[in-house]
Amino acid sequence: MSLLVLGVGSPQGADRLGWQLVERLRGRVSDDAVRLVASDRPGPALLGLLEGVDGAIIVDAVVGDCEVGTVVRLDASALADDGRAFSSHELGVAQAISLGRSLGQLPPRLWLLGLCVDEQQVTTPGEVAMGRLEKAVLGLLSELAADTAGVAAAGGVQIS
């Protein structure tokens, strides 16, 4: 069994909640069972990160029709490509997943957990919102672990 939590965003400034989340999880999940990665716009490298993984959670800031501070859970494999054309500097998460779907190389379980943020992203999310996001990630990890074959043999996901 192999699980991945991928925090996406800028390592600096207000868009760093994916990085913060990964930092919060260090020491709370077993390194053997869950790989923790933080990435600044992974682009096509996202597909390499997802290769051979049984289940993955992508964590990112989201803007849209949701209340700031709430956590949204999306089946990432069903994410629609937003229609924006590719550029050499910008291959977004949705586009990379769309490409992975065409190539038939997405993991069987792929989720996106987003924390709704202000569109201007002036401030980083507070402790309450980050705690909510962390709880959601840990809950989903437990679901993935239970849902993944061979969990017992591998010892499961150790969550403190």
Partner: peptide
């Protein structure tokens, strides 16, 4: 093709090699 996503459906091995 409009984009690599469409191209990948018919030329998957070549796109994988490119990546």
């Amino acid at each position: 093709f409009d984009s690599v996503t469409g191209m990948a459906a018919e030329h998957a091995e070549e796109v994988r090699r490119g990546l």
